[in-house]
Amino acid sequence: MERRTFLRAAVVGTSAAALGGSLWSAAYASPAQPGPGPYGPLGAADGNGLRLPNGFSSRIVARSGQKVSGTSYTWHNAPDGGACYTDGAGWIYVSNSEINPSGGASALRFDAAGTVVAAYRVLSGTRQNCAGGKTPWNTWLSCEEVDRGYVYETDPWGVKAAVRREAMGRFKHEAAAADPVRKVVYLTEDVTDGCFYRFTPTTWGDLSAGKLEVLRMGSGTSGPVTWSVVPDPSGAGTATRNQVAGAKRFNGGEGCYYADGTCWFTTKGDNRVWQYDAAAGTLELAYDDSLVSGSAPLTGVDNVTGTASGDLFVAEDGGNMEICLITPDDVVAPFLRIDGQPGSEITGPAFSPDGRRLYFSSQRGTTGSSSAGITYEVTGPFRA
């Protein structure tokens, strides 16, 4: 059988440092298999409809179409991709809005005790902002999931005006992940024959100009890769994914997450998690629901994030509305489940800078409508 790999994480330092890309090390193993998770089984649904392991609790921090508690700001519809930022003794959670037109993004500001002290808009006038990514210089890349969509660089504090980054290409963007070592940004594309891209800025920290490349490799699911320049990132005459012969195709690119030399990304069309080893220049299939023994607990793979313990948290679009984790021991298990919301999807998982709180949204809530989104916080004994 073809060798599969899974990135095992060994993180040294604080949670905040790990979330910024601390030491992770690669090891070869079989695909992650179902097993008992490190937090034990899920309990009964709480008052918010969340089934959590023992010791964890939830609260709702925002609802679409309603004023955020303690503020005069109305939370956006269809909350999607998100990220957290340190803000003095507190933090900020940024969340996209996946509606078209008038998508954009908003932010929640928390004080040191976790109380919401402000909510505000950071991006307006854009279309179907799905996922995105955090930069090392603490901006939020908000991606438009429409044909010939743009990436917008936004200020989580809402002070500086958002900037459209045309050099990063025009295509159906999904997520982004910054690699500060190679000084590139990886990008996924959410179409059935999409590609995996990297953008190299002319000057690191300035995304106004640079080179867009697409990944190339053979027809398999693992092996060495090469990168080729996309001749016309605007996609004006020919779609970016069709400009380079031999570009590797991926079935519905979704979440994208980087840590210490490796970029994970997911594809929803085949329920796979991929591992790109930037140092070695190789691509490996890290998880595939068709390769697990028995029933696969993780399906509908979507947004991803990681923790200091080396756990990878993967949100489901559909499936049974779970966030599953894949441990460094190659065990895949549910971490939480949302009951009573079959017409929704889980989006935007991101940890607070200290790693003690997990934020995410149910995009369409209990009614299945974009106006019924719910943004949650889960607190508990996350592994350090």
Rank of each mutant, 00 (worst) to 15 (best):
T139P: 01
W140A: 02
C143V: 05
C143H: 10
E144R: 01
E145W: 07
E145P: 05
V146S: 02
R148G: 03
G149K: 02
Y150I: 10
Y150G: 02
V151I: 15
V151P: 01
Y152H: 15
Y152S: 15
Y152M: 09
E153H: 11
E153I: 12
T154W: 00
P156I: 05
W157D: 04
W157Y: 12
G158C: 09
G158Q: 06
K160L: 15
A161E: 11
A162D: 07
V163A: 14
R164Y: 06
E166N: 07
A167L: 04
G169L: 06
G169R: 04
G169A: 03
R170S: 13
F171H: 13
F171K: 03
F171C: 07
K172N: 12
H173T: 02
H173W: 05
H173M: 04
H173K: 02
E174Q: 11
A175D: 13
A176K: 04
A177H: 00
A178K: 01
A178V: 06
A178Y: 03
P180N: 06
V181M: 06
V181Q: 11
K183W: 04
K183T: 03
V184A: 13
Y186Q: 01
Y186F: 10
L187E: 11
E189D: 10
E189R: 10
D190Y: 00
V191C: 08
V191A: 09
V191S: 07
V191M: 11
V191E: 13
D193N: 11
G194L: 05
G194K: 03
G194S: 13
G194F: 13
G194Y: 01
G194Q: 04
C195T: 06
Y197N: 05
Y197W: 10
P201G: 08
P201I: 13
P201K: 01
T202D: 15
T203I: 14
T203P: 07
W204Q: 00
W204K: 01
G205Q: 01
G205E: 00
D206M: 05
D206H: 09
L207I: 07
L207T: 08
L207A: 09
S208F: 09
S208A: 14
S208Q: 14
S208I: 10
S208E: 10
S208V: 10
G210H: 06
G210N: 01
G210V: 05
L212Q: 15
L212Y: 07
E213D: 14
E213P: 09
V214P: 08
V214E: 04
L215T: 13
L215H: 09
L215A: 12
L215W: 11
R216Y: 12
M217L: 12
G220D: 14
T221D: 14
S222P: 04
S222K: 12
S222R: 11
S222D: 08
G223Q: 12
G223F: 07
G223A: 04
V225K: 12
V225M: 12
T226M: 01
W227Y: 10
S228H: 08
S228F: 00
V229A: 15
V230T: 13
V230R: 06
P231A: 14
P231I: 14
